[in-house]
Amino acid sequence: MKLCDIAHARTGDKGNISNISVIAYDPADFDYLARELDEQRVATVFSSIVQGTVKRYDLPQLGAFNFVLSQALGGGVTRSVALDAHGKSRSAYLLDLDLAER
């Protein structure tokens, strides 16, 4: 099963920080996603572009998580030579992640 089967995502940026929010379609999937999407796993997914830390903030009342990826935008939106300087496509990349069977 892919992450996109049970969740959607949004992205944002500020300076050299990118954030990805993952929101479960069904809040009942929150605990399952909490086990599957820890900071280390998301850091591994983006290891080629994130030079800093990955911090996860849990929002159980929304059935969501916010991942903050520091040093992830090549120096910042206005300084980066990256094709996607804002990191908007990163949410789609994360949603393609394979999840373990429940």
Rank of each mutant, 00 (worst) to 15 (best):
L83C: 05
S70A: 09
V50Y: 14
A72H: 07
G52H: 07
T53P: 01
C4Q: 15
V54S: 00
L37V: 10
Q71P: 03
M1E: 07
E36D: 07
S89E: 02
G75C: 05
A100F: 06
F46N: 07
A28W: 02
S89F: 00
D31K: 11
Q40F: 06
A7E: 14
H86N: 08
V54L: 05
D38W: 13
G76Y: 04
I17Q: 15
L69F: 14
R56Y: 02
F65G: 12
K14H: 13
I23P: 02
S80Y: 11
L94H: 10
L95S: 08
P60T: 03
T53K: 15
A64C: 12
R41F: 00
K55S: 15
P27E: 06
C4H: 09
S21V: 06
G76L: 03
E101M: 09
L99V: 04
A85V: 06
R90I: 10
K14L: 15
D26F: 05
R56Q: 03
Q61T: 11
K55C: 10
G74C: 11
A100N: 12
G63T: 01
G15E: 01
G15W: 02
A43I: 03
G75V: 06
D29F: 01
L95Q: 11
E36S: 11
G74W: 05
V77P: 04
R56H: 04
S91E: 10
I20W: 13
A72G: 07
G12L: 00
V50G: 03
L62C: 12
S70F: 11
V68Q: 05
Y93A: 14
Y25W: 04
A43Q: 09
L69C: 04
F65L: 08
F46R: 06
N66L: 11
L62M: 15
G87R: 05
I17R: 12
F67P: 08
V50W: 06
N19H: 12
L59H: 11
R79C: 04
Q71S: 11
G63I: 08
G74M: 05
P60E: 02
G75M: 01
V42G: 05
D38E: 06
Y32D: 03
V77G: 13
S80W: 07
D31C: 08
S18Q: 12
G15P: 03
S80D: 01
A34N: 09
R102I: 00
G52P: 07
K88W: 02
T44W: 03
G87P: 07
Y32N: 07
D96I: 01
